[in-house]
Design a protein around this nucleic acid. Structure first.
Lengths: 283, 283
DNA sequence: AGGCATATATGCGTCGTGCATCGAAGCTCG
DNA sequence: CGAGCTTCGATGCACGACGCATATATGCCT
């Protein structure tokens, strides 16, 4: 819906107008006490409370979890925060939503301005709106995830940091992930700003789920790649080994691969054929 | 991220500070021209533009696509709008996000106040932020979807409308859906307010995708049900017939079902056994 | 009592997957 | 130059899930 001009009549006002019921049990009890009757006085109080908060608007930002696979590890791009809160900590690239740009454009802009990347696979991930996820004001952030192959990250790492992602949970469980700065010899875990470790965890969970039935794996590879490359990417994302033969057959049968006829070079064994992603699969 | 107090230094300012690059080609060209160099003057201009829009905040609402399956049809709960814009049209239950409540609590509150429903399966769906989705101001809405069995809808239909959902696309394609008011004999399609037909379409697409590997099907049934009931619900959601034997075996093998020992009653044929959803499946 | 409609169990061909085997094709080294 | 190494890539086979067909069970109706 959406009414900046508050006209919507509020039916079935909750017994506690100020705070909505949090626990399902309490909520059900409240409903049982006053099932479907509309009390005028309750409506009045409810409207008053509604009015008060309706015009106070939270800030809206976009954050981008930029993921890649480098040296058989999931990596992400982080920025060091130069101002409080969480000064000095690492955070996802993000920024405010402008009034005249769609959400996805804002995410692309953030990626362009802060990571120097354009023309990147980008998809909405989840919206995080915990009340105190930003200690200053209410900030609702629409998180996106982006996928690039590691070659495109090299050029962008001026004041950005590449961090290796370690997933402390198995399969599809979910939860925050741990990040370790890449390159630096010390392996101390980075403490991310805000709820960005949760955002990254959600992103990992999402791409793990979508990997089998969507062509997102190709986004993490250069244009030409071998089947072994593709399998290593899948194994890195999923965090578990895959059967080689089954993977081959499944990929070749999916119709998403196009043989280039070219062969691998500079390898000390039999070179594999190079394939290309063919997006005319969904025909 | 999220900085109401604008301190974030903007690196790699785009060559056109006002409008972020829209076309991938143009964007890539711009990046090639100025790869990783930070120009101070560009930063200045960029910050000025950034400041201007950073403090103007969009409104944030939540909308809930409440879905159910009734008489072998997908149905949703709609409200008639009593004020412009889209006065008289039907819309999803929704409302403003309050400053002190999490997103999911807001969605539950909306469901409680406008549909009289509590303790409902509720999950975040997608965030819609097209610039002019609300003709008055910028409104970003965080859409949720909710699932209930049709028995819980009867009590709630005071000034709400139940509408049958017709999906004009097949499988996982996506897009808006058509709605037809239930009960009324005439089958004229309802024109929904805002982008709510898209939200419903996204919800249908989502539950179609999640139906096989999550227990959401049980949310659309009463506590006890037969395997045939469950199959009909699945077929209605997916919009295609399913193989009976395969469905039986898959469901029984999933470990999510618990036989009650009871049998169906008041049917003019052999009664089927009643099952119950057992959430101790993931053990 | 018999018919009817549906539930429930069983058997079989097919297909995808995991596993093992085998030949092929480049490189390295003696 | 040929043997040996490593990985590629194809083939064969057992197993399980699925689609399909068949057979039996069971409560209600006539």
């Amino acid at each position: 819906m959406a009414q900046p001009q508050r006209r919507e009549p509020a039916r079935r006002a909750p017994s506690r107008p100020k705070s909505p019921a949090r626990s399902p049990g309490a909520e059900r009890a409240a409903r049982k006490a006053a099932p479907a009757v509309t009390s005028e006085s309750e409506d009045q109080r409810y409207l008053a409370a509604y009015d008060a908060s309706a015009f106070e608007r939270p800030s809206v930002t976009v954050d981008v979890a930029l993921l890649s696979v480098k040296d058989d590890a999931l990596v992400t791009l982080l920025l060091s925060r130069t101002s409080p809160p969480f000064r000095g900590r690492h955070a996802l690239p993000g920024g405010f939503l402008r009034m005249d740009e769609p959400l996805e454009v804002a995410a692309a802009r953030v990626l362009h301005d802060k990571a120097g990347l354009s023309d990147v696979f980008l998809e909405q991930l989840y919206t995080f709106g915990a009340v105190h996820r930003d200690p200053r004001t209410r900030v609702v952030t629409v998180a996106y995830y982006a996928l690039v192959h590691p070659g495109r990250l090299e050029a962008a790492s001026s004041d950005t940091t590449l961090a290796r992602i370690e997933v402390p949970w198995g399969g599809e469980t979910g939860g925050p992930v741990d990040c370790h700065a890449l390159g630096t010899a010390r392996s101390g875990a980075l403490t991310l700003a805000f709820d960005h470790a949760d955002i990254l965890g959600t992103a990992v969970k999402r791409i793990r789920g979508k990997l089998d039935y969507t062509p997102i794996g190709f986004q993490l590879l250069p244009e030409r790649f071998t089947l072994a490359d593709l399998q290593r990417v899948h194994e890195t994302v999923l965090g578990r080994p895959l059967n080689k033969d089954s993977f081959r057959r499944r990929m070749l049968a999916s119709g998403q691969l196009e043989a280039t006829g070219e062969l691998q070079r500079e390898v000390d064994h039999r070179p594999a054929e190079l394939y290309r992603f063919s997006r005319r699969s969904a025909v």
